[in-house]
Nucleic acid binder design. Sequence first.
DNA 1: GCCAACGTTGGC
DNA 2: GCCAACGTTGGC
Length: 136
Amino acid sequence: MKHWLVKSEPEAYSWTTFVQEDGTAWTGVRNYQARNNLNLMQPGDLVLFYHSVSEKAVVGIAEVAALAAPDATAETGSPWVAVALRPVQPLPLPVSLAQIKADARLSELALLRQSRLSVLPVRPEEFDAVLALGTK
DNA sequence: GCCAACGTTGGC
DNA sequence: GCCAACGTTGGC
């Protein structure tokens, strides 16, 4: 199983909305590297849900519910894809970017290296470290 | 509000 | 094909 992190500005689409809707198609990704990551996702992969900009914290865990398929919000024939995500559980404690930066286990987290990429891979041990911080 | 990073666009 | 200009993202 692979692990991932997706970002969303909470003002645009929040974890709360995601839970209320019981999941969503993760549409709107318009970056090739992010798209390549979407294409690598398998149903059951676990995904950290990160609130960028105003909150800057991992707030919950989602899972991939369906393989990448053409993004319905993009033009027909475009290369853009979306996966279906559904909520698994909120983190009891949001894990802030500051905490992530302060943790030696997370020093190589892709989020820190490529802060602008919206769909990022996460190593299993990194996923576990974030989970530990969020449930302590 | 500013700025660094970085992707895209368009002129040459 | 190169690169300057420009737009967007996201942290500070």
